[in-house]
Every structure is written in structure tokens, then in C-alpha cells.
Amino acid sequence: MTNSVEGRRTLPKAGKRERLAGAAAQVFHEQGVEKTTIADIARAAEVPVGNVYYYFKTKDQLVEAALGAHGQTLQVLIAALEQYDEPRERLKALVRGWVDQRDRAAQFGCPTGSLASELGKRGDGLERASAASIRSLLDWIEQQFTAMGRADAGELAVALFAAYQGISLLTNAFRDPELMVAEGLRLERWIDSLAQ
């Protein structure tokens, strides 16, 4: 996980490779892949720029590492959500987690969605790795709706994730975190209505 210092996320001390992967995920989210330099990532990871090349020969390898960091973050998130007894509560906790990130969404958009969108335009194969993280979350959401007894669990999973991506985009476009708060409340009511 990350800590916040003066509004900027900082990475906990870990191995250099892990710090670089986490820093890449952070800086790509904040600046985009194309605008980010290897020096930017080295600075965020607090690693001398020359050391980056020991672990990652190319920027695309750093993109792959960032996608891996996203995947690890997702697994930690899912493990935390699994602590809730009911699938409906797990889904609502997921929504609340999204809403808790509203200020970052207003500033930079959704980390996963922004990266997926950018990589999708490149067509060099990295978009498939990005899609794998999204698929993993969609599968988990679908499992929750299935556990709620919904025959349309797959469609509901897509609807929930699409609603989040849409509100993340609008929150970022209008720089208005309160949009995400309102949508989060609506999504929680929607989830409750599906359990009846």
C-alpha cells in the first residue's frame, strides 16, 4: 500500500524492483505512459536512474511491471473485501473504496481504466495484459452477484464496473469528486435493490 505525504503518494521501502514497479504504476497514472520518463520513475522510487536498467531494460518492461503492481493491489483489495460475510456487503465495500479514491480520480482518473485506455491505443500487446486485470475484477464481481442468486450476474458485473469507469471519467473531466460520491450512493442502493 502507499502512504500520503502532502497529497503525493509515497512508496514504502521495499526491494528496488518492487519499488520501481510501484513507482511506475503511480507515475503512469499521474502522467500517462507516453509523458513519463524512466528518470521520473527512478525519482519516485528513490532509486538512481542507472539502477533502473539493471531491473528493466525498456520502458515497456516498466509498463508490464506496473500492470503486475496493479494486479497485486487488486489481490490485496479482494482479500480485504472477502472479510465481509455477505456478497452484497462486499460489493458495497468495493463501491465505497472507489468513492474513497475520489480525489485522486478527480485529479488523474481511474488508475486501471486510464492505463487500459492508453495501452489500447498502442496495439502492441500490452493492452491484453491490462485487460487481464480488468477481467480479474469483473470475474470477482460476477461471483458476488452469483452468490446473491442472480442469473444475470455477468451482465450486472459489467454494469457495475462500467458505472464506476463512467463516473471516474466524469469526475476527472469535471474535476468534481462529489460526482463520485453521488454515484457511489446510487450504486449502493442499486446493489441493495438487487438482493431483494
Rank of each mutant, 00 (worst) to 15 (best):
V27W: 05
T112V: 08
L187C: 02
E127L: 11
L179W: 01
K92E: 11
R135D: 15
T10H: 04
L185R: 15
T146Y: 10
Y53Q: 09
S114P: 01
L20K: 07
V49T: 04
R96D: 10
Q61K: 11
E127R: 10
V47M: 12
K57Y: 03
K16W: 01
G109N: 12
L185K: 15
A44I: 05
V63C: 04
W98R: 06
L170I: 03
E18Y: 05
H29V: 00
S133M: 00
R8C: 07
A182D: 15
A147L: 12
G123M: 08
C110V: 00
V27M: 04
K13F: 00
A21T: 00
G15E: 13
E188N: 08
W190Y: 13
A132R: 12
R43G: 07
R8M: 01
R102W: 10
F56Q: 01
V95Y: 10
I41V: 14
A147N: 07
G7R: 13
H29S: 05
N3E: 12
F174H: 14
A105I: 14
Y84A: 09
F174P: 01
L62N: 01
Y53D: 02
I191L: 04
A23D: 00
R150L: 12
L185V: 06
A21K: 07
I141R: 05
K16I: 11
F145P: 06
W98F: 15
T58C: 06
T146A: 09
E142P: 03
Q83W: 03
F56M: 02
Q143R: 07
A79S: 14
I167H: 03
K16S: 15
L138Y: 09
A163L: 03
E46T: 14
K121D: 00
E142K: 12
Q165I: 12
S136V: 03
M148Y: 01
A131V: 02
L160I: 05
A162C: 08
Q72K: 13
P177G: 08
K59T: 05
Y55S: 03
A80S: 15
G71E: 07
V27E: 02
E155T: 12
D152I: 11
V33C: 05
F174D: 13
E18Q: 14
A157P: 00
S136N: 13
E155Q: 14
V52T: 10
A42F: 09
V27K: 08
F161P: 00
L138V: 08
Y164T: 03
I167E: 06
E86S: 13
R186Y: 11
Q196E: 09
Q83F: 00
R96M: 10
S130L: 13
P177W: 10
V99G: 11
G120I: 06
V49L: 02
G125P: 05
